[in-house]
């Protein structure tokens, strides 16, 4: 009986605080524009329409807006993620046929907790359990490219349409690239020692977890992720705000606009050596579009910065031979080029 009461209390405590915070969140969010205008026009008494005024207004409005979205969504995703551990994902993917496996792996890649520092143990764990190489790659491509942070920033700064386009094309790239890598039969280009690993699958954590612990996981992921990326977001929005006020419209149109066929490949070439997460790059990309870069080129740039990065390639070099890395980078790059062209010319 006592045990039951305690459990009930824990659940209530877990629910209560978020339930109280959500109305406050909504009120704050709905009034951000008014507050930003009040600060700029009334407190600072700045003249509307001037470069500096609009730059500051953009900054004072966007930073809290994106932060509020981040906190809410990361909290939700943090809770959701307690249901999707890498071990469960691996279990689902074991023995799946190639194409179905690629689709599942890409979808699971978006929701399974993933950090690039865990890329190697995750890769090894998948391969060791008999998840096909191509399916593993679908996961590894989707995981960094499509995540809650990217989604929030895309919705916040570009709107739903672009966010959905980004997710659908990102998923297609992950599914098809992984499928193709699987079809090419590149298993021999995985470092030999990888296949010698024998893992012990019995040492699992006890799986019973209270809902209050899931809520705690939500708080923890807010603390961890927001703690890590807030500075990138502020810098990204500051750069964005500066360009918003000062760089002339269509400044980049000549180089990276719709009319230039080489805009997309150029954007990808510029994107690979740049290493940033979604948090740092998306605010900057939002400005690129405003200054005349076409949507396809901007999407290609964003995807290549996030999905293809030198540090990740260096990490993967531990387990893959260079032939396989070349194929992987090549296929993903071609996929991104196609996405870029489709949006520049078809849409």
């Amino acid at each position: 009986m006592r045990e039951k009461v305690i459990t009930l209390n824990r659940n209530l405590n877990g629910w209560l605080i978020p339930a109280l915070l959500i109305p406050i969140w909504v009120l704050t969010y709905l009034n951000l524009q008014n507050v930003a205008d009040y600060i700029i026009d009334d407190i600072f008494g700045m003249v509307s329409g001037k470069h500096l005024t609009e730059t500051l207004r953009f900054f004072i409005f966007e930073v809290p807006k994106v932060m509020l979205l981040l906190v809410l969504i990361i909290f939700g995703v943090g809770i959701l993620r307690t249901y999707f551990t890498p071990e469960k994902t691996r279990k689902i993917l074991e023995g799946k046929s190639l194409f179905t496996g690629n689709i599942l792996a890409s979808l699971l890649g978006t929701i399974t907790p993933f950090c690039s520092c865990s890329a190697i143990p995750l890769f090894l764990g998948f391969v060791e359990a008999g998840v096909p190489l191509g399916v593993t790659f679908s996961f590894l491509i989707a995981a960094p490219m499509i995540n809650e942070v990217a989604l929030i920033l895309l919705v916040g700064l570009f709107g739903w349409e672009v966010a959905i386009i980004y997710i659908l094309t990102g998923l297609s790239i992950a599914i098809l690239s992984g499928w193709l890598i699987g079809k090419l039969g590149l298993e021999k280009y995985v470092a030999e020692w990888v296949y010698k690993i024998k893992a012990n699958h019995e040492s699992e954590l006890d799986s019973k977890i209270y809902f209050s612990e899931r809520i705690n996981a939500g708080y923890e992921s807010v603390k961890e992720i927001v703690g890590k990326i807030w500075i990138y977001i502020i810098i990204g929005i500051a750069v964005g705000a500066g360009a918003h006020g000062y760089v002339p419209e269509d400044f980049l149109g000549a180089l990276l606009g719709k009319g230039n066929w080489y805009g997309v490949p150029l954007a990808i070439l510029m994107g690979v050596p740049m290493y940033s997460n979604a948090a740092g790059i998306i605010p900057i990309v939002s400005v690129l579009i405003e200054k005349g870069v076409s949507l396809g080129t901007a999407l290609a740039f964003m995807m290549s910065v996030i999905a293809l990065s030198l540090p990740e390639i260096i990490i993967l070099k531990k387990v893959l031979k260079w032939q396989l890395i070349t194929v992987f980078v090549g296929i993903v790059a071609v996929g991104i080029v196609i996405v870029g062209f489709i949006f520049n010319y078809v849409m």
């Binding site: 143990p121 998948f126 010698k196 012990n200 954590l205």
Partner: peptide
Amino acid sequence: DIIEIMQFGVMTTPVLVIDGKIVVKGK
């Protein structure tokens, strides 16, 4: 050593093992 780590059957690091039992992983 990654090969030794994999013996524990984990896929997220870091991991804390007390007397052969995994008590923390991935955080």
